[in-house]
């Protein structure tokens, strides 16, 4: 009898933990995706961007969410099956949150064609679902934190985390017209300065400034070891993600190679900071 009562209590507490996780997911989705939900270019992209690129973005989001779930998740996910389940829940929260917020802001109306309605919600669901996934790790700090345990992050996982961070910040900024305007206003000298600045800040945030979650080196390891092994690949990842998001949002057009490079470097600045932040947070 006592055992049954205990298992019923366990079930209830597991259920309430799950509901709390959902709540945190919604909070995370709102908190991190609201800037994009309120960006004009994102509404327009919802109906004019090429459907195959939108589909590609939506598909790429799935493995990204699964990897994030495996790393942080709504609950402690130990198996890939649970990670997939959490990823699907996060995507669902992202879609619902986008739908509710866009409707509340009067951006979805009955008279609009179906492709516009679906396009707007689908595009916004990508950042919202990442936000939902991060909601748990960012907003839930008190209970069941297991950071005292010594864990090892494999090198590819570390690079993937940087890619996820870069993608999140790029999604925020790539759709805006400011990206292209900045690239048009800048000279090549400005771009070179921005490149050096991005790399320096990336390395500084992770190693020099002592944030919680920061990285440190063994006293016997020279500083350039981490610089070559982590910061430089991280910057290349940030630039690649910039190219990808600019291409997805059709920002590259028929521009010349130098103009494309300038806009990639401009977007690479926030992307590289996002990559560095991901190493601190995740």
């Amino acid at each position: 009898m006592a055992g049954e009562a205990a298992s019923a209590r366990d079930e209830r507490s597991e259920f309430s933990r799950f509901v709390t996780g959902l709540g945190r997911g919604v909070a995370g989705a709102l908190f991190l995706a609201l800037p994009m939900l309120m960006t004009m270019e994102m509404w327009y992209l919802g109906f004019y961007m090429a459907r195959e690129r939108l589909l590609l973005l939506l598909l790429i989001n799935i493995p990204l969410l699964v990897l994030l779930a495996h790393r942080i998740g709504f609950e402690e996910t130990f198996t890939w099956r649970e990670a997939v389940r959490d990823a699907i829940i996060a995507y669902g929260i992202g879609i619902l949150t986008s739908l509710v917020v866009l409707s509340a802001l009067g951006l979805l109306k009955g008279g609009m064609p179906a492709s516009e309605l679906v396009g707007k919600v689908a595009l916004q669901s990508v950042p919202a679902s990442i936000g939902a996934m991060l909601g748990r790790s960012q907003l839930g700090h008190d209970d069941d934190e297991d950071s005292d345990d010594a864990t090892e992050t494999r090198y590819p996982a570390e690079l993937l985390m940087m890619g996820a961070g870069a993608l999140f910040l790029s999604l925020n900024i790539a759709p805006t017209d400011e990206m292209m305007v900045l690239a048009y206003k800048m000279t090549i000298w400005h771009a070179i300065v921005v490149t050096v600045l991005s790399i320096a800040l990336m390395h500084g945030f992770v190693y020099a400034v002592s944030f919680t979650g920061g990285h440190e080196l063994s006293p016997e390891t020279p500083w350039w070891h981490a610089f070559v092994r982590f910061t430089l690949p991280g910057y290349v990842i940030a630039l690649s993600i910039s190219v990808f998001t600019l291409w997805i949002f059709e920002r590259l057009g028929d521009s010349s190679a130098v103009e494309i490079m300038l806009s990639v470097i401009v977007l690479g600045f926030p992307a590289s900071l996002g990559a560095a932040a991901a190493r601190l947070i995740l």
Binding site: T151, E152, E158, T212, H215, S218, E220, T221, R279
Partner: peptide
Amino acid sequence: MTKTEKGRHRERHDPHWI
């Protein structure tokens, strides 16, 4: 590889060649 202990990460001194 990176070792995480008490919220701090420490880079391994003997990394893989990759």
